[in-house]
């Protein structure tokens, strides 16, 4: 028991680690920030004025003019956004599923895998709005341009997620299928698909949630949906109507998020409910299910 013998003299505090290298990170960081603030011409007076301007607009937004926007057919526009998101997600899902099998490193050879992975990366790099800018002259203004933009963009993310979940599987069932004389396709159908389908279908739902927001935005440049309604109300400075559109959009987005999150939880975790009561408050406040 030597270690306990000299408790009378307290142990020395270990020396603090040297921190000089932190400055090499901090200084470029600070320079970038100062450069940005100067470049955007952000002055103290502008910063102090902005909340006041925003507040005066906010005051004009109450009460929201629900009747007016209802008569203009805003509800139909919001549903159009949901339809765009739904069809876009289906296009993305159907196109990405076979591609994901060809991109996974445990089931596909490298010569087909790497071009498809690059395709996913390239698609993900281009935002929906930019795709819509390119597609609108081709298909004309309207919902179909937005649907195609969302569908194309979804292929990138859905393909990447599906590919990652295929790479995580247990490879035993593929081997079993092969041992029974199955071809590559049967291995995929009976060995891989049953394992990954729950995860992939919950990714589809998650992407649908994202797409609802994206399709609302797409309307702002004329690709169908509720965005055009918000833009026209704001440019007429009809703030009560704009806030009504905004509130209705938020209501639809939150409803879809909540339903979809519940379904996803059901798919992944099953019907089992555990320590649900202790988390009631969290369940009430956590209206959406976005994960990291």
């Amino acid at each position: 028991m030597e270690t306990l013998s000299d408790t009378s003299t307290p142990a020395k505090r270990p020396p603090a680690p040297k921190t000089i290298h932190r400055w090499f990170i901090a200084i470029p960081f600070l320079i970038a920030i100062v450069w940005s603030l100067i470049g955007l011409n952000i002055t103290l007076s502008r910063l102090l004025d902005a909340p006041g301007d925003a507040w005066s607009i906010l005051r004009q937004m109450v009460p929201p003019a629900f009747d007016e926007v209802y008569e203009r057919g805003a509800v139909g526009k919001i549903f159009e956004s949901v339809y765009i998101a739904w069809i876009g997600t289906i296009i993305g899902a159907f196109a990405s599923l076979p591609l994901a099998f060809l991109a996974a490193h445990n089931v596909a050879p490298i010569w087909i895998r790497s071009p498809i992975r690059q395709l996913f990366n390239a698609i993900r790099a281009v935002p929906e709005l930019i795709l819509a800018v390119i597609l609108i002259p081709i298909t004309g203004l309207g919902a179909w341009a937005g649907t195609l933009a969302i569908g194309l963009h979804s292929i990138g993310t859905l393909g990447k997620w599906a590919c990652e979940s295929i790479e995580d599987i247990d490879e035993g069932p593929i081997e079993a299928t092969r041992a029974c004389g199955g071809k590559w396709v049967s291995g995929m159908r009976w060995g891989v698909l049953p394992q990954v389908m729950p995860v992939i279908s919950s990714y589809w739902l998650f992407r649908f949630e994202i797409n609802v927001r994206a399709s609302a935005v797409l309307g702002m440049i004329g690709a169908g949906g509720v965005g055009s309604e918000l833009v026209s109300q704001l440019s007429f400075r009809n703030f009560p109507a704009a806030s009504a559109v905004l509130i209705m959009t938020m209501a639809v987005v939150l409803t879809i998020d909540t339903i979809s999150a519940a379904v996803r939880r059901r798919i992944i975790k099953g019907a089992v409910t555990t320590d649900e009561d202790s988390r009631t408050l969290a369940a009430i406040t956590d209206l959406t299910g976005i994960r990291s």
Partner: peptide, 18 residues
């Protein structure tokens, strides 16, 4: 949660107006 329910470009359009 309410702030996140509004898409990013809606915020941009609102603030451009404001």
């Amino acid at each position: 949660n309410l702030v996140r329910a509004v898409p990013d470009l809606f915020w941009a359009k609102l603030l451009v107006t404001a």
